[in-house]
Design a binder for these strands. Structure first.
Lengths: 218, 218, 218, 218
DNA sequence: GATGAATGAGTCTTCATTCAT
DNA sequence: GATGAATGAAGACTCATTCAT
């Protein structure tokens, strides 16, 4: 078999196993049994167990990076919200196409080793940076309300991550509808706008009587 | 009570180690060295390594459960938003008080084994259920805009989780301010309300020309 | 069993196996089978296979070092040749007492790794230095004939090493007689002195007609 | 002849690697990488790894055998000491020409397997036999002093081996001078002859007052 | 002849758990 | 209750050798 094909074959099986059982409960023995290759063959294509895992993780991160495009503002560029929608859809579509990579990234890549932890952390920091910069620009352009953009960026990131996790568990969800819901939430929040308005729009503290809604975390 | 003190001592050291290095990179040897007990002594207090980890995890979940209170609506009850704020603050205060438990729950409890995974999944599902029920009620009471409440609930959950993770990394953040920012975001989103209004409030698809900001996830 | 006793037990068996089969053909499995201990027990006492080997080697070197004493010249000190004889006898006695350590040092410690090679090389260099210094002093005191003392020191070292190797193979040899023979050879060479004398004592090149014996290396 | 050239090429590279790193740390992978041949090709020319090593060892032994010539005594034959000198010089010249083979024989051929060990042991036994027979003859002819010729033969062998090892490490030494020094040492020992004489030539135990010199092995 | 992908036996090492004292 | 020596299953990785192309 050609080198690349064999490599891909092993990666495919390893991906499934890592997604299903995580790193530590997946043995080389498991992988080579699934891939129907000999023990030594594995080490012909990958330095060690960590390596193949890191490669899968990098696949996930790389694919996500390519699907999250920087917003472009200018004449001839699509509506920014449309661009957001496209980013979201591309990410959610990835989840459907690569559920296993998503699982690996979301559920099995944590507290692993310095290097891998840093890679993932960096990825998320970068995404957060992009979100924050967008918010800052939006504020400058009078489109986004004044706020502390860093924590808000984290909220947005977290929301998308959670949605991604859910979609990965229940793949029957409609990507378009999900994206719309997330966008709406991010833009408008959950409160009925007329209530907020009634309560005074500029209020930094919207804790007025009629507005008692929001996350009922109990 | 001597027994309980000894147990607590071991738990304390195990907590620190698990938080720092995760489950797999923490050895029984590490724990007993830190706790200055003999190997056999460890097994007098805990069935096995998984058990002590599960106990710490349960500590985290239990503490969080107790800090997330069901919203109460009625005369004499505090403002619901105030209740949300309190919930959030209690959770964030827990992160400051028990950074290590937070780390264990957030970064080291994933893809572990069927049972533990289920326990964590259940916890989050329950929290999500509470959020969703609150949203549903809010819609009923005309306080929350119409939306698909399940994904929105996940967004809210995710946002809080991410904020919790960040706070655990950078503990100098002010809990009150953070809570406020999260509340605001959840209630109002990021868009300047007058723009949304101008764009037509009822529009399910707010992708009008003027509204082009939002999370610039690129 | 007490720590030291158990350690000694493992060392004893490992010593026998290393001496018999060398490092590479000796497995941990062999050692623990001989010592009748579990696999893990081995690693309770030794870091790894190399370690236990290094320790045995160090035992050999240390023992030899302590048996090779610096010559002391002065009133009240024993005759220097007697001191030489004692050194030799102590070394040869060590070979009889610790045939296995001798085998390890002589036959199985070569080309191992940087560190171990260096340790052995250093040992021999130090011994050579001692021999050479003695020769230099002897020349100064008009007791040793003029010669290039470095190569001569190597010849002496090599001779002793070879004798040691032989004694280790055939332990029935009498240590006293062997020591005497080696001493005689080192002091007088093999030529009959009157022939050398006849041939001219000072001749640096003793290649005269009558002197045609010596190492018949063919 | 193409075949022979290829074989020689592989042998050359293997020789360098074995000399540098020894048998066990040299992989087939190393050899074929150096020789720029495929893995399978190696096994077209050599049965296995041990074989190529054995062949190199045999090269060394064979070359040495041919360079160590039996002393010939008789009219028309060169001075026996001259013959010894020639033998020595041929051996030392071999060390310079084939440092790597020398290293393999001296440092990496020990404790290998039954067969190879035996081959090397036989070689040295034969050399020792030759030396011993020469000594015996010398005694018969009243040229060599009475002694136990076996251990003396070993001393001589050992001395030469050590010199060979040193020359292999430091190749700048002058072969002629080295040979002379070794010859002198073997013939005359280190003691000043007049002291030995004064002490009584025939004394088996030369440990008299004035003769207190010799190898100061401390 | 040449190639190099594939093989799998062999080895070291780790570490949670047990149990006699 | 406390100890810590002993256990052995489990798992990662290496590397000489084979064989289909």
């Amino acid at each position: 078999m050609e080198r690349q094909a064999r490599r891909a074959q092993v990666l495919r099986h390893a991906k499934r196993l890592f997604a299903r059982k995580g790193y530590h409960r997946t043995n080389i023995a498991d992988i080579i049994a699934q891939a129907r290759i000999a023990r030594g063959t594995f080490y012909l294509y990958f330095q060690n167990k960590r390596d193949i895992f890191a490669e899968l993780l990098e696949q996930a991160l790389g694919e996500l990076r390519s699907r999250i495009r920087r917003l472009k503002i200018g004449p001839g560029e699509p509506d920014p919200v449309e661009q957001l929608r496209s980013n979201l859809k591309r990410v959610l579509t990835f989840v459907l196409a690569e559920r296993e990579l998503t699982d690996i990234l979301l559920n099995h890549s944590t507290g692993f080793d310095r290097d891998l932890d840093a890679r993932i952390h960096d990825f998320y920091e970068r995404v957060t940076d992009q979100i924050q910069r967008s918010l800052d620009l939006g504020i400058e352009m009078n489109l986004v309300r004044e706020c502390d953009t860093r924590p808000v960026a984290y909220c947005i990131l977290g929301g998308v991550k959670e949605i991604v996790g859910q979609l990965s568990r229940d793949q029957r969800r409609d990507v378009g509808a999900l994206a719309e819901e997330v966008l709406d939430f991010g833009l408008r929040g959950v409160a009925r706008p007329e209530l907020l308005e009634a309560a005074g729009l500029g209020a930094a503290t919207p804790a007025q009587d009629q507005i008692f809604y929001g996350p009922k975390i109990d």
